[in-house]
Amino acid sequence: MRRLGLAALQIDAEASGNFDLVEKEIRSVVKRFPWLRLVALGELIVHGPSTEKAEPAGGPTEKRFQALARDLDIWLVPGSMYEARGGQVYNMAPVIAPDGMIVSRYDKMFPFRPYEASVASGSGYCVFDIPGIGRIGLVICYDIWFPEVIRTLSAMGAEVILAPTLTNTIDRDVEIAIARANAATSQVYMVAVNGTGKLGNGRSVVFGPGGELIYEAGTGRDVIALELDLDQVAQVRERGWHGLGQVMKSFRDSSVSFPLHASAAQRQEALSGLGELAVPERESPASQSIPHSSKPTDDRPQANGRSGRD
């Protein structure tokens, strides 16, 4: 049986400067659960969302994480950090092996535009193998809103997909639904780990390869330590979840083509009518429809700023 001992840490973080706290949490969970093989954290958990904190590849933050993984003999995906490279800044998540080596650096494919406008887009997929256990895929936050990415990682053999996240907005409930849908449609474990405190609103989730909820955290600090049975992924893909849809086989065997996926130019032309990708501006009063009442109005000033009867 192929079991992955995994801990997803939902850390109660400050806006920046969280490395000491992060290291303490990692050391604590590994001491408490010595069967852990992999520890994962939320997006931008150490330095927060400021690109001014960007470091070069192999910078001090990455080196400190390498030393920590080596000391604890664990696989470590320490969320992400901004990395300066070639005159651009990327939202990058390193994958660190138990010997401290960087086996992959994943650049977020879909920065949260238009808000993450100064961050460059990555173009390479990330999967890595844990010997004797299985293959893991990696995305970052907004990437999960693009099911093509998750489907591709699953087709590349990923059995677990990690999604470090930094979300503090009202769409967290939607993201959870998307994570569940991705797990079911690509028949893969989805582990979406968010921050909390000043960096996120929590509710990290783990879904199984049938889309079943394994765990959902609350909005505060949480330690999600569990074992994932990777043989279940193989079974679900072979027989269907509870004998139902064999989704990845149907996708494999279908003769349907997806031209807008194959050609970026065709996709851009087809969707050109959507307009510019920009931060929404405040609407002017003239552009808003103002309803008219048939009732007479009292234009006299009201005491205490009141505009009508209580």
Rank of each mutant, 00 (worst) to 15 (best):
G42E: 03
S272R: 15
K295F: 13
G132Y: 03
L230K: 05
S28P: 02
R85S: 14
A184M: 12
S284F: 07
A67I: 01
D229P: 12
V233D: 04
G100Q: 04
V103F: 05
P34E: 06
A278L: 10
S118K: 09
I176A: 13
M81I: 02
V139Y: 04
K63P: 02
G211V: 10
K249T: 13
S272K: 15
G134F: 01
E52I: 04
R306H: 10
S80G: 09
I130G: 14
Q88A: 15
V30T: 10
E212R: 05
R85C: 05
G200E: 02
W145A: 14
H292R: 14
P147V: 03
V119M: 00
R180W: 02
E175Y: 12
G218N: 05
G5T: 06
A278V: 14
Y115T: 12
S204R: 01
R85A: 13
I133C: 10
D229K: 07
P114C: 02
A265E: 14
V193G: 11
V256N: 07
V95P: 09
A15C: 03
C126V: 03
M101K: 15
N182P: 06
A183T: 09
Q232G: 04
V103P: 12
R172T: 14
I45H: 01
H292S: 11
F146E: 08
N201H: 03
N91M: 10
H242F: 11
V223D: 08
A303M: 08
A8R: 03
Y142N: 15
L138V: 02
G197P: 11
W35L: 05
R37V: 03
K63F: 00
G273F: 12
T51E: 03
A184R: 14
R85E: 12
V206G: 07
Y115S: 11
V206W: 04
V30Q: 05
R172S: 11
F258A: 06
I161N: 07
D229N: 15
N182D: 11
V236W: 02
G275V: 07
P209M: 00
V77W: 01
V233G: 10
R237N: 06
T185D: 11
G42N: 08
A303N: 05
N18R: 02
S294T: 13
S272I: 04
R27A: 05
L166M: 15
Q232F: 12
R309K: 12
R135A: 02
M156Y: 10
A181P: 00
V39S: 05
E227N: 13
F112G: 11
I140V: 15
E23G: 04
L226W: 01
N304S: 13
A69S: 13
G42C: 12
P296Q: 04
C126I: 01
G42W: 00
G122S: 06
L274M: 13
L199R: 06
R2E: 09
D12P: 07
E227H: 10
